[in-house]
Amino acid sequence: MDGFQAYGAGKAGGAFDPLTFLRQPQTAIRILCWLFSIVILGCVANEGYINRPEEVEEFCIFNRNHNACNYAVSMATLCFLCSTAFLALDVYFPRISSVKDRKKAVVADIGVSVLWALVWFVGFCFLANQWQVSKQEDNPLDEGADAARAAIVFSFFSVFTWVSQCLLAVYRFKLGADSATFNQEYVDPNQQEALDEAPPTEE
């Protein structure tokens, strides 16, 4: 990656180095986003519902509001899938030869990171509010209380991890925009040689 850089990665065609990949800040933060979503999903899905003997259906630990539990489970699942997809994109990113395609990937990273930061901010406020107004008589034994608090805390942490991911993506975008080595029409040299050797097409 030395010398030639475009949006935070060198020219396409190099071998994948797992250690270099894991040492990148965006990789570490992406893994944190991934782990936090698993924690939130596990806490709410496993201990977010209580089944009282006198009631037929179980109810959500967050003020009996099923919307709160459904929001947490749905967003954590989607966040897990999204983080996995972007981790895969990070692995593939150095192999993208077109600067335009790299730019699209980085812009998508910025947009998705902003979206998830907002989603988890709303989720944190929603879960914290519903937990605060929950009635003691609904759960006198405090079943799942630790899991509920953990879901709230990790929702709060998720806001900062996604904001950090957005800032790193913005930094990568600025690196690409200010690059003197690459221009927006750059293509991988191997592809350019193939194009040069190809016979001309008749019009």
Rank of each mutant, 00 (worst) to 15 (best):
G8V: 02
A9R: 05
A12W: 00
G14P: 09
P18F: 01
P18C: 03
T20L: 15
F21S: 03
R23N: 08
T27N: 01
R30I: 10
R30N: 06
L32W: 09
L32S: 10
C33A: 13
C33F: 11
C33I: 04
S37D: 12
I38D: 10
I40G: 02
G42H: 09
V44W: 01
A45W: 04
A45H: 07
A45Q: 12
Y49E: 05
Y49A: 03
Y49K: 10
R52E: 01
P53A: 03
E55S: 02
E57V: 10
I61D: 00
R64V: 06
H66S: 14
N67T: 05
N70C: 13
S74L: 13
M75A: 11
A76H: 00
A76S: 15
T77F: 12
L78P: 05
L78V: 14
C82A: 14
S83M: 04
S83I: 07
S83R: 00
T84W: 04
T84D: 07
F86W: 13
A88N: 05
D90S: 01
P94R: 00
S98P: 03
V99F: 01
V99H: 01
D101F: 11
D101Q: 06
R102F: 02
R102M: 08
K104F: 05
K104E: 14
V106G: 00
A108M: 10
G111S: 07
V112I: 15
W116M: 00
A117D: 07
A117H: 02
L118Q: 05
W120H: 06
V122Q: 08
V122D: 07
G123H: 02
F124E: 15
Q130Y: 13
Q130E: 14
W131M: 15
V133E: 13
N139H: 06
P140M: 02
P140L: 04
A147T: 06
R149W: 15
A150V: 15
I152W: 04
V153E: 10
S155G: 14
F157Y: 13
F157C: 15
V159A: 07
Q165L: 09
L167K: 03
A169L: 10
V170A: 05
Y171C: 14
F173T: 05
D178Q: 14
T181M: 10
E185T: 10
E185N: 13
V187W: 09
D188N: 14
Q191V: 15
Q191T: 07
Q192D: 15
A194Y: 06
A194P: 09
L195A: 13
D196M: 05
E197C: 07
A198P: 08
